[in-house]
Design a protein around this nucleic acid. Structure first.
Lengths: 342, 342
DNA sequence: CTCGCCTAGTCAAGCGTTTGACTAGAACGT
DNA sequence: ACGTTCTAGTCAAACGCTTGACTAGGCGAG
């Protein structure tokens, strides 16, 4: 009873048939006019009449019906994990910027580890998107042969059959390692992100390889990808690392560095005097920390822009670019300094 | 030519008819089984056979067709502006958390000022969502009589005919004013967010009223809602404010405080020694700044949770709760201190 | 006068589901 | 033997749009 009451005053959707009736034409003509399709099949004055009625009635084409009929929707999906991470926001901004009003975008996101990742992908597909852009590792999320084109973001190990936009993580990681080595650091603690994603594996490997090649050692710990998680983990692990003679800490992403910085501060461990700190990402807030964080800058906004561009290409049937690689660069700030005098 | 090539190997969607054929039943039965609907209309063994075939073929119901047929989609939309602001992310997390797998959620977002806000709303509706949750002021985005239920978030002035979830901004703003007055501040600079949103108007008014009632003065400047914008604006305005004897700065939201803090630091203006700084929001990073920011904490995650709860109520036809108000509380940290000795 | 073509449209099938109405056959009571 | 009730399904219309096929009427060419 109240169930009915709740929906009572709701306005019924205006359909093409309503407009057709009002304008004294067929729905075919309405469709033709609305889509500006077969221009010479409809008289200019008829067109005006239809448009006027459509506007007056507030007609909005029903995309589910249209997309069912055409097999195309003009909507692309964006699936991401790591909602709390502002990296997500930057990528999305880049996408929107580049898509402009050429296509509409719908996003689904989950926090890392949320069970909904696969469901999200399904939702997007079942809603009839023309394609989807998947941020970070989502191999498990992407089915075997998705019915629409897919662009993979920041998944270095991603399957070759998809179009991919990646960072050149190796160069960045390498520069960071070189930077720390130059400052005299030999024993380094690496706080890894607790998610099996190839991007994190690559960051670590490239960094550790370089350090080890130079005779240094890298010890590893893993944390959930959020500020508190990192703080907790570091609280536990710092004493051990300190005992091992660790003089620098590298975090797999900025939020981990935030948590680390926070806990080190409350432990009274000076950064960079006692221990150097650096991370991957370089979110807008990284430079605002105190001390400002030395980072491997990953151009998230540009990732979004490029992804959109590549994606439009793919939709247009252009199958040329299979992988786009964006540079990553080291940004040295105050959080890294020479190894403490010893 | 290549246009064809691009789509060539794409897998065709598997339809209910395919499953029906494979299982030797009608599509009606497939539908019944898939939706677990009229259980006694189908023999257990038939059910198993259908499910097996569905799984084998990788059948996924087409939501556009279903939603066209039923008028209901099980998907709710979330429209927001301010993508770069991590507030957005927190709200969304709250929503997801509470929705669980009861409904799927699709988001559309724009950066502030982006022209796409209205288009976004249209996209959501045309895709057939069962309702939409609108963050911040979107009066212009919500049509006169949207065909689905709407929940408005953080829009204190929002039209009464919608269900709303708001913060009790007045109490928070008031506490902040009291805190600053107690510390001896009488001339205060307020960096307002450059967007005409009732939430920002309310924040300002409540704060300024209290200060003025106590005989203090509030001077105002406006900035785009991003870090760099705030820095630029403050770079211009600080000398004037300083000349006026301003001893404390309040920002309409955290990102403005970030930019302000950054520029004050490079100007060599000590916080809180020379000038106190506070803001509204209290994003997770606010406590990590140096000095840690004093903030009016707005529980974004909880906003999302409550919104989801209220929304499910509305969908269920329960029209009881018209407005939910969440408390805002002052969190005093290091960025505010007594007015500089004079 | 007839044929063909153009113009400005309309018709109806089809997209993939859902669902109320219907049914062939079996079981059952009288 | 006959009507009723179950059971386990099937049928077909409907959701709102798109689009290839079709057409009534007008007009020019042969």
């Amino acid at each position: 009873m109240t169930t009915m009451g709740g929906r009572a005053g709701r306005a019924r959707r205006v359909t093409a048939a309503d407009v057709a009736l009002a304008a004294g034409v067929s729905t075919t003509t309405v469709s033709l006019v609305v889509n500006g399709k077969d221009t010479r099949r409809v008289l200019p004055e008829t067109r005006q009449r239809v448009l006027a009625e459509a506007r007056r009635l507030g007609y909005q084409v029903d995309r589910r019906a249209r997309s069912l009929a055409t097999g195309r929707s003009g909507i692309v999906g964006f699936a991401a994990t790591g909602l709390s991470n502002s990296f997500f926001g930057s990528v999305q901004m880049g996408l929107l910027e580049e898509f402009g009003d050429r296509v509409q975008m719908l996003s689904v996101a989950t926090e890392v580890g949320h069970t909904g990742a696969r469901a999200n992908m399904t939702t997007l597909l079942s809603v009839g998107v023309d394609g989807v852009i998947v941020e970070a590792d989502a191999l498990d999320v992407v089915g075997d042969r998705p019915p629409v084109p897919i662009v993979l973001l920041d998944s270095p190990g991603g399957p070759q059959e998809f179009v991919r936009v990646n960072f050149d993580l190796t160069t960045g990681a390498d520069s960071l390692a070189a930077h720390l080595l130059e400052l005299g650091h030999r024993r380094i603690g690496y706080l890894q992100a607790g998610r099996n994603g190839s991007t994190f594996a690559v960051r670590f490997k490239a960094f550790a390889d370089r350090i080890r090649a130079a005779g240094g050692t890298v010890v590893e710990a893993t944390s959930a990808i959020n500020i508190e998680g990192a703080s907790e983990r570091m609280l536990k692990v710092w004493p051990e690392w300190d005992a091992l003679g660790v003089t620098a800490i590298v975090c797999a992403c900025d939020v981990l560095a935030y948590g680390t910085l926070d806990i080190l501060r409350s432990l009274g461990v000076g950064v960079p005097d006692r221990v150097a700190l650096a991370s991957f990402d370089d979110l807008p807030t990284a430079a605002l920390m105190n001390p400002a964080l030395t980072c491997v800058h990953l151009p998230a906004l540009e990732l979004g822009r490029q992804a959109a561009r590549v994606f439009l290409d793919v939709l247009a049937g252009n199958t040329a670019a299979r992988e786009v690689v964006l540079p990553s660069t080291l940004v040295v700030r105050a959080s890294t300094g020479p190894v403490a005098g010893r």
